[in-house]
Design a binder for these strands. Structure first.
Length: 224
DNA sequence: GTACAGATTGAG
DNA sequence: TCAATCTGTACT
């Protein structure tokens, strides 16, 4: 069964754990690529120093508006009332808006994908209510169907496996017929390993938060 | 305008 | 350990 909107509207840490064991379906060239999520990380902006929505210096309202207007055509299909969307973002403190991270402010169930190091894509799913920049980074999949020569055991590698790129920026996983999630296994707290997140040393004390989750004993969890 | 770091990866 | 080289930020 396809996963619906409500699944993604819950608190981000809960969603990050619930996503373990769920299936990602991707229709590509008349074939179905399937992967089971085995590793995730939560990013809870704007208070989380590791989040793209975190800013040390407050961004001006005019600068935020400029970026939202500039990118409006890219997100207009995913919001109901532009006025409400704008006001929610503008009243949030210490929240940064960029051309890249704007989709993080959409309600749960949308795709936040971006290029990192000029080479690799990172696939995140937005969580929580509209106006709050929170998401879950999908770090590793267990391949169920697809090209088994392309290992999906890493955040960039799984994008290659799923054949997704920046064209999916903002994509709605709930309404989509070509890229969506299906229900799968549920894991208890003791079957879920919690560690600090990877590669975010710059986030100071927040780099130590236990917001990375993976299925205990699963061989497809990414290597460090 | 220029410099630099980053939610990574595979090769050596 | 390093290079691949895009995007955002903090400087000049």
């Amino acid at each position: 069964m396809k996963i619906g909107r409500d699944f993604f509207l819950e608190p981000t840490l809960k969603v990050a754990k619930k996503l373990l064991g769920k299936y990602i379906f991707r229709k590509y060239k008349r074939k179905l690529i399937i992967g089971k999520i085995v590793e995730t990380e939560a990013y809870i902006g704007p208070k989380d120093k590791a989040s793209h929505a975190y800013c040390q210096k407050e961004q001006s309202i005019n600068e935020k508006k400029k970026i939202i207007y500039k990118n409006f055509s890219r997100i207009k299909n995913y919001i109901q009332d532009p006025e409400i969307f704008l006001n929610r973002i503008l009243k949030l403190k210490n929240a940064k808006v960029t051309n890249r991270n704007l989709v993080e402010y959409l309600k749960g169930g949308h795709v936040y994908i971006y290029l990192i190091y000029g080479l690799y894509y990172q696939f995140n799913i937005t969580t929580h209510k509209e106006g709050y920049p929170q998401c879950v980074l999908i770090r590793s999949l267990e391949p169920i169907s697809g090209n088994f020569k392309v290992y999906p055991n890493g955040p960039a590698k799984l994008c290659n496996f799923l054949k997704i790129d920046s064209s999916f920026w903002g994509h709605d996983l709930i309404k989509s017929e070509i890229f969506y999630l299906e229900n799968g296994e549920n894991f208890s707290e003791k079957e879920i390993i919690k560690t600090k997140r990877i590669g975010i040393e710059y986030a100071k004390e927040d780099s130590q938060l236990p917001w990375r989750f993976y299925i205990k004993g699963n061989k497809w969890v990414s290597k460090l």
